[in-house]
Design a protein around this nucleic acid. Structure first.
Lengths: 338, 338
DNA sequence: GCGCCCGCTGAAACCAATTTCAAAGGGATT
DNA sequence: AATCCCTTTGAAATTGGTTTCAGCGGGCGC
């Protein structure tokens, strides 16, 4: 072992070696104007030569600010529900990048329990300044409780009218509209929305779709399937069951995400239906597989980089005591062949 | 604001309220046998009533152990290379779960620079006990340098013979063998390996494939394409170019991952080739899209949960001063229709 | 009755930084 | 020459825990 793995060199060591006091070293390292240029350079060179790095824990203890943001990602339910949608991970990547740019540490958490107390405890124990919660799900009331304790949080999702916390999400209503407009361009008449509208995001997508097709210059039909399971197989089965029951087939299907869209397309094709000839199917999220699928899937893309930046920026403002408004992220229709 | 968001209540407060001293509170909370049963219960009830949570930063400062593990994930190159393979994220999920079970905090890092100094700095500054590095890539010599500084690290990848650090990865050689055996079952004769064998993992997969087909009771042909770009489109283009040039078409293709397999299948089908009739194509990783693709892709699945557990367990042993051996993760052939 | 040991408790030191506050040194002003 | 001020510095306090060490009181053995 060439060098002891526990950092032996502390600020006091640097001070001794540089023939100055601890506070001077501290000031030199933090670019304080209180220290003389020459002294600073000397201290910095000694520090560099010793391979010194400040102990962030001591720093965090002393400052009230920890420069650490907790990010919760519900891997468990992700896995249990067979949500294979990599979108959440793109979002995590965006958040990671944005937090890095703000020089914040990212503490990745997968809370065991979905109650405000568990979240509160993470915040206190781990000493994070705030919490980015990826995915609101059905936890709105819990999050409300959590926010009420004064916890600085930002949530990815869709804002309730009476939310007491900052929500950032894609413009789901606009997303639905874009899909509706796309369908109308093609002269589609019988629309089917597939999703679980008990999720606010899904409800908005449905409403957006509906609002767009109301503008149709001809008669239309609107239908929906409430799909409460998230797996590909559940969606496939639902499609088969649905096709069995209906009298007139829809010619335009908007699925809550790309995986469901793929499942519906597969089911339709297996039943001998031509996609997109007979039916157009549109997804959401633009996961990578969407473009490789055959046919490549028309879908709504959300800018995950922007999302990450906005989530990080809002939260840091909240930590600073401001109360920024909820925000919507760019939403874009990606035209493919489905 | 019902309650001040900065934790006002400290151990000293609890001590005062419980009419004991700070050390007694500390001992009570950590279940030390030094404190009387009755005292402990009293202290615990006061703490609970006050919603007290220890300040981990202070704890980390005092203990030498921080109970924090840094995990590096190269989102940047992930994005730049259009690696859309969600496998790495499954791996992250596995690691997150395993670290949680060991009561370790997970610090997610995306290092700016790929040099040992940058990694060393993260370890020192952020005060992590060790580093899990997801993806070895071409950084072996850097990692060697890093390990030489005494940094406790575990790397996901394939171990070099002379590695001075612990490597955990799937059994790539065995994975290649499984694919080879699968091909032989079907009587395939002309094999094509697609990947970048400058990556140790890929080389092993290739060697595994080769070793399996050497057992063929008939004449075989072995070919490979060195594919240095990772995107679907690059793979598709490579396939088209390759089909243009070759004289006899392979009837068994092993692609380095599922995305490349999908690209090859698409290219083949677009060229009028029947998959799996004329050619069998096998991927690696079993990403969700593999089963939804048409045809569903035969692939190698790696147990990401086991991977996470092993990575975490090895690293914690290293932190404790042991030097565990590198390890291989279960690898399994998933038979589908490609 | 004396000494010993054991169980339990708290005062003070410690971890590695930052911040407050006092003061030294030097230059400018009167 | 005395005063003032400004730049630069360091001693000591502070952050919230844990650990060391000394001590107190009671039970037990002799």
């Amino acid at each position: 072992m060439t060098e002891n793995l526990k950092r032996a060199v502390t600020m006091a060591d640097i001070a001794r070696l540089a023939n100055v006091s601890k506070p001077t070293v501290s000031r030199a390292l933090s670019n304080s104007p209180l220290v003389n240029e020459k002294t600073r350079n000397h201290v910095l060179s000694v520090a560099a030569e010793q391979g010194y790095a400040v102990n962030r824990n001591a720093q965090k203890l002393r400052h009230k600010r920890t420069n650490t943001i907790a990010v919760s990602m519900d891997f468990r339910s992700h896995h249990e529900n067979h949500i294979s949608d990599p979108f959440m991970f793109d979002l995590l990547a965006g958040v990671s990048e944005a937090l890095g740019d703000h020089n914040q540490d990212l503490l990745l958490c997968a809370p065991n329990h979905n109650d405000a107390a568990a979240f509160r405890q993470i915040l206190n124990e781990r000493g994070a300044d705030g919490f980015i919660i990826l995915g609101q799900g059905h936890r709105e009331s819990m999050l409300k409780d959590f926010a009420r304790t004064g916890a600085p949080i930002v949530v990815w999702g869709a804002a309730a009218e009476d939310a007491n916390y900052c929500v950032v999400g894609s413009d789901n209503f606009r997303g639905g509209q874009l899909v509706g407009e796309y369908f109308l361009e093609q002269g589609r008449r019988h629309f089917l929305f597939v999703g679980d509208t008990s999720f606010r995001e899904m409800h908005l997508r449905q409403e957006g779709l509906r609002s767009a097709i109301e503008a149709a210059p001809y008669d239309t039909l609107f239908d929906d399937i409430e799909l409460r399971e998230f797996s590909y197989n559940a969606a496939y089965d639902a499609a088969i069951r649905y096709l069995d029951v209906i009298e007139s087939r829809p010619d335009a299907i908007f699925a809550w995400n790309d995986t469901a869209a793929m499942a519906f397309i597969s089911a339709l094709r297996d039943a001998g239906v031509d996609v997109p000839g007979d039916v157009s199917v549109v997804g959401y999220n633009d996961i990578p597989a969407a473009q490789y699928f055959s046919p490549p899937i028309t879908t709504i893309r959300q800018d995950t980089h922007q999302a990450g930046r906005v989530l990080a920026a809002k939260l840091l403002r909240i930590v600073d005591g401001e109360t920024p408004k909820s925000a919507l992220i760019r939403t874009e229709l990606i035209r493919r062949d489905s």
